[in-house]
Structure formats: structure tokens, C-alpha cells
């Protein structure tokens, strides 16, 4: 049995509670950002691009057996690290669960500022896009 969205969020909150200061936290996020490319280069096209004012995010969604799998990338490392966290939480979940997900973990781990719409890093638009994919796929089912 795979983990639910909230179980994954709670696990991330616990992981982050071990970091003593912002630097350790950001070093971890940067590390996540530096890890393997999250998206097939072929998907880094303009139609999959979510434009933030400052950094850009590419998002690709695919449905496999009632579940939605996301891959994504960003040109900024910290954004990419945060994108990677979002994917950990939402990828491989069912459309209806993604649609109704309450993503409280970002706030809990002290990264709320990155989800502010004025931050313009493409992250808010990405979450919105993930939910829109879920809505669209759910309607199809």
C-alpha cells in the first residue's frame, strides 16, 4: 500500500525538523535540486513551461492506471528543490486526492514565503497546474 498525500507530508515535516537552522534546510533543498534531472529534456518545451517572473518551471503529467505521475524541472536550483518536494507529495496519487489536497507541509517546514504568489518563482503556478491536470483527468474518467 503506497503512502497517502498527508502521510508523505507528515514524513517530510519530520525530516525537516532535524535541521537546526535555515542553512541546513536550504542545503538539503539545494541538494534535492542538484540531483538527477527530474524531467525528460524532450518535455522542456514551451507548452509545458510555467512562467514565473523570476524562475521558470516545466511540468509534465502522465496518467498510469488511475494515478497521475508528474515530472518537472526548473532553471533555479532552490525552486527545483521545492518542485522536487511537491512531486514527492503529489506524484503517483489519484486525481481526486490531488484535487482536494491541502498542502500544509510547506508552511510547516518554514518555507511558506516561497509559496507566496508575489514570490513569482513559478511554484504557485505549478501547484495550480498540477491540480488542473488532476481535475482534467478526473473529468475524463
Amino acid at each position: 500500500m503506497s503512502m497517502t498525500i498527508n502521510e508523505i507530508q507528515d514524513e517530510l515535516i519530520e525530516d525537516f525538523s532535524f535541521f537546526e537552522d535555515w542553512m541546513a534546510k536550504y542545503e538539503y533543498i539545494i541538494q534535492l535540486g542538484k540531483e538527477l534531472p527530474l524531467i525528460n529534456e524532450a518535455y522542456k518545451t514551451d507548452d509545458l513551461l510555467i512562467k514565473g517572473c523570476q524562475s521558470r518551471v516545466w511540468l509534465h503529467a502522465q496518467e498510469i492506471e488511475d494515478k497521475i505521475f508528474f515530472t518537472a524541472d526548473s532553471d533555479a536550483i532552490i525552486t527545483k528543490g521545492l518542485v522536487s518536494l511537491m512531486i514527492k507529495v503529489l506524484s503517483g496519487q489519484r486525481a481526486e486526492d490531488i484535487m482536494s489536497a491541502n498542502l500544509y507541509f510547506i508552511d510547516e517546514i518554514g518555507l511558506k514565503e516561497h509559496l507566496s504568489p508575489t514570490r513569482a518563482n513559478g511554484l504557485v503556478a505549478m501547484v495550480k497546474q498540477m491540480k488542473l491536470y488532476a481535475v482534467a483527468l478526473n473529468a475524463k474518467q
Binding site: W22, M23, Y26, I30, C53, Q54, S55, D75, A76, I77, I78, T79, A120, N121
Partner: peptide
């Protein structure tokens, strides 16, 4: 390094700069 990333770290250190276009 992407300017956004640099701006985030600088902000954590109390340095206010502008990043972006």
C-alpha cells in the same frame, strides 16, 4: 547560479537586493 537562488540566500543573510529581469 540562477539570480533567484542567489537572492534567496542573500535575503537569509539580511542583504536586500533585487533579482530578476
Amino acid at each position: 547560479a540562477h539570480p533567484y537562488d542567489v537572492g534567496v540566500i542573500l535575503d537569509k543573510l539580511g542583504v536586500a537586493v533585487r533579482t530578476g529581469h
